[in-house]
Write a protein that binds this DNA or RNA. Sequence first.
DNA 1: TCCGCCGACTGAAACGGATCAGTAGACTGC
DNA 2: GCAGTCTACTGATCCGTTTCAGTCGGCGGA
Lengths: 353, 353
Amino acid sequence: MATRTPEQPRPAGGSRVTIADIARDLGISKAAVSYALTGRPGVGHATRKRVLDAAEEMGWYPSSSARALTGADAGVVGLVLSRPPELLTFETFFVHLLAGLEKALAERGSSLLLRVIGDHPDEEIRTYRRWWGERRIDGVILLDERYRDPRVAQIREHRIPAVLCGGPLRDWTMPALWTDHGLDADVAVGHLHALGHRRLAHISGPTEFVHERARRRGVRRAAARRGMHVETVEGAYTGPSAARFTMRLLDRDGPDRPTAIVYGSDVMAASGLVAARERGVDVPGGLSMLSWDDSQLATLIRPSMTALRRDNLAYGALAANTLLDLVEGRNRGLVQLPASRLMARESTGSPAG
Amino acid sequence: MATRTPEQPRPAGGSRVTIADIARDLGISKAAVSYALTGRPGVGHATRKRVLDAAEEMGWYPSSSARALTGADAGVVGLVLSRPPELLTFETFFVHLLAGLEKALAERGSSLLLRVIGDHPDEEIRTYRRWWGERRIDGVILLDERYRDPRVAQIREHRIPAVLCGGPLRDWTMPALWTDHGLDADVAVGHLHALGHRRLAHISGPTEFVHERARRRGVRRAAARRGMHVETVEGAYTGPSAARFTMRLLDRDGPDRPTAIVYGSDVMAASGLVAARERGVDVPGGLSMLSWDDSQLATLIRPSMTALRRDNLAYGALAANTLLDLVEGRNRGLVQLPASRLMARESTGSPAG
DNA sequence: TCCGCCGACTGAAACGGATCAGTAGACTGC
DNA sequence: GCAGTCTACTGATCCGTTTCAGTCGGCGGA
């Protein structure tokens, strides 16, 4: 806009210093300044130092827009959280994931562009398309793979670099992070079997999520291997849903009634616990409980909740690094996450009968 | 890179359609296309429609870099969460805030650039400076104002548009969101007074946060107005810290022992509850408890926790709108948040004595 | 009939940085 | 003493969009 007096080292209107300013001050060309600043050969030692010092002193920052325009990466990764906000709240999973993601991104010089929307896959894809079209992002992270997930085909069609949390995919066009839920299920069911349980119930999250399907299958197989009886119920990720199913199971008598319940999340398990207490059922004396997600909540309730603990910080970091590798041209393919660890607490014990 | 055959409407390598492509296809100038696409006068009705249709069909998106380069806003707001990740996890406050923030931003066409770092104000300011210098963001949101907060002066010096969550500031250079903690304190203390309590303790969060100072002052004044005795302890936002202070208070005998404790957060209160149970103290019979933050946790523990509830979704939305207004040139000054609502639950009752 | 004006459009410059094709000058080798 | 090479730099062009300064044709007014 207005011409600035050269005497003023720091322009008043915020840092609007460009390489042209530095070039003028030092009496050299813009190209030389660019070479010096990007660490490329083409300038002498002394000049490079002068440029670097001047840039530092004048408070120069590279304009991300200008750089992106010449073909550089955006240095930004996109993430859309498409679960209703009230669900996000409870699940510490997301915050952990976000923190891990961000830490890994920061270490490699990228940032996170975030959008929180309700449960609306269409809107999620449209957001990714727009961000990608506008050259805002280098790639995206697809959370919570669903059964016949429409996002996968769309992301592939638009050739947006992505990592899928949920996989594995049949083809290897897209790196995927996956957990061996069968293994986790075996640990959980094994723990209950060792305590003497023979009849158990599994109140899972919605089966539209592939990881919930895998967990259900895992629990059924682990139980079958041990000759246990298991009943699987599809719940929502909410307290009331879990409480309702818990009540229903506890209303039964005799051998139809499970002696242990496995819940899909910590909030579900905590709500189940409250429901059991209202029915006058002692935990773990009359019923054992196990949660598939560990969190602070599990340690703050009484009895404290036995839970399968996953390192979600590490999960996030792995997702970020897998995506950045892909952006740089290295497709890691199928990345397996470490198995969960069972945190045995007060909510599991030997059945009374 | 390689020249593309003009027969192919959608280029294979992702959407790389530019206004030049549209101009060539339609046999008009780039300028005309730009006028049509931005809704500015300068093209006729028929031409505008042809351009719009072509853009739609060819999958054109405006390059955010190119737009930003010509002086447009970045359409992005920056947020740095500078609390250790393990604290972020517990406090549902952040997730709620994020969701509210994002919803309001999306409605006005902006996105959120997020960074999660440990408790390091220097790093936070450096991140903001860099983002601003790189023209990545239009403004920032400063969370959790601290006593003598170094961020305020720095943000002001660099002329980065910002809204301060904590305020009010002495001068009005920066819009600020603030809560009348005195009012909230009065509601909480009034509730306990009405139940018959006369000796209470307040285990607050760290006093480096201005809102904690305001709350402590508020509790002391509200208690003094009613002739109650109050003791204020500075805790950390962690369970163990709250548990330790609770134990210490319960170790006392007779009139030195408070009959009610107000906690700085839901996790602190839940931990205090566990500590009380370990000491064999009945809640609310032997001790009443009240948490300054409401969350799912408060309803999942037994006894359920009486809490002050703030609408953090609305808080986030207000912060976002205040910032976007500022970016557009309207400084809202001091924005007051609605008072908290007391959610009376099982953890408060009349004292035994 | 001619002037002035308006609408519809064009050409070119600008934004900030990267990069390509040069070009002086110093140095090397013979 | 001169070609050849290397270093250290310069000038120009490009990226995709906005915007400024025109240009051109048509139309109304006097």
